[in-house]
Design a protein around this nucleic acid. Sequence first.
DNA 1: CGTATTCTCAAACAATCGTTTGATTCAAAC
DNA 2: GTTTGAATCAAACGATTGTTTGAGAATACG
Lengths: 220, 220
Amino acid sequence: MTSAPYASRERSTKERILGAAEALFATHGFAGASLRQVTAAARVNLAAVNYHFGSKDKLIEEVFRRRLDELNSRRMAALNRIAGESGTTLEDVLDAYIRPALDLSRSDGGGAAFVRVLARAYAEHNETLRRFLSDNYGHVLRQFANEFSRLLPNLAREEIYWRLDIVTGALTYAMADFGVIQRKSDVAERDHREAAADHLIRFAAAGMRNPSASNSSASR
Amino acid sequence: MTSAPYASRERSTKERILGAAEALFATHGFAGASLRQVTAAARVNLAAVNYHFGSKDKLIEEVFRRRLDELNSRRMAALNRIAGESGTTLEDVLDAYIRPALDLSRSDGGGAAFVRVLARAYAEHNETLRRFLSDNYGHVLRQFANEFSRLLPNLAREEIYWRLDIVTGALTYAMADFGVIQRKSDVAERDHREAAADHLIRFAAAGMRNPSASNSSASR
DNA sequence: CGTATTCTCAAACAATCGTTTGATTCAAAC
DNA sequence: GTTTGAATCAAACGATTGTTTGAGAATACG
């Protein structure tokens, strides 16, 4: 029953659809990529999407779930290693949040495309998608907010969430752009990305630390 | 001939369409917002878009042109004030690039919505749109790249463009998100945005200064 | 005034969208 | 070999997309 018919093919139909959808959503967006493009790229029948996933929206959710399950468990593992410790810095927490996404963007199997899908999800303020992400991975964000609150006791909870959203959005976009531009040498690419990620984390830490009420005059 | 018939209306048909399109593109994206939504929000006939602009793509271009003409001339004015000077810092150049966009997002007449449209344009890697922006405002980017090259003589020209794209994309997204979240007090909002912008600029400067080949080990 | 031009409007255009249907093919169960 | 259920397929569904049409109303020009 759980065995897969048609399994002699290279990959299962569901996985081929998910892979093609991921790549096309990254390039053309969720509204811009049609199911006919997706099924043509996956070389499956048009009806296969609704058969296996139910609808386009459910397919979109599955594209997220496939990657975010592992991404967020890695984030949680990294956070649990440092949460509550006395020597933990803001940069450490941000690293626990960002590094798994950076690793994902470096992975071979379409992870780079998914990071661009993530950036699109941030750009689009799709309400149903945000609800899905909040319902399924809200606890991760909540745990990170807990740790940020511990390190930034002067900031209100609402302020924490706000800054975290802005900062991760900017970080996600920057990381997604890494995947677009092809570098001459792969090793140089990895080094640069690593160095840029460190700077991004330091930037994010500065943004999180920024006191709220102080007017930032005379910076130049 | 150049006088406007139907001018007794509150605003001209073209301007009403542009305003409605700007707001809807910011919310639903270019593919997600239909011309029927746009014309309904502008309370004009559906055919008015194709009559006044020719096509949806031309309308999109006009939405950009209306704001970017002034935005980029402000950028050029700010850049010309500091370009070539001996005391000019990287932060000054980035400020000349970012500050006009920040001012725009604070303006009353839909500027905040346009900043979100800008962020979408960065997220979508639409080729025709990128070509339009490059054709019409490429000289601005080129002038800024010149100044960056002067301050960062060790970086290759290609590297300058690459980093500038990433950095401005992240900055644009972060600024766009400012407009989504409504703050309790307007004065606190402005102060916070100002302070955050300063940090964003400092982050961008760090990202631009980042030496290319250095592996960033032992940051923690 | 009358003519010309500009603009608006309802209606339809062909194309594409996500989705559904019903028949057919496949692999396993008995 | 027959049956069963899952998977694939071509075809069509109604809805929506951007765009075009042609007639009509509003303004401008002589």
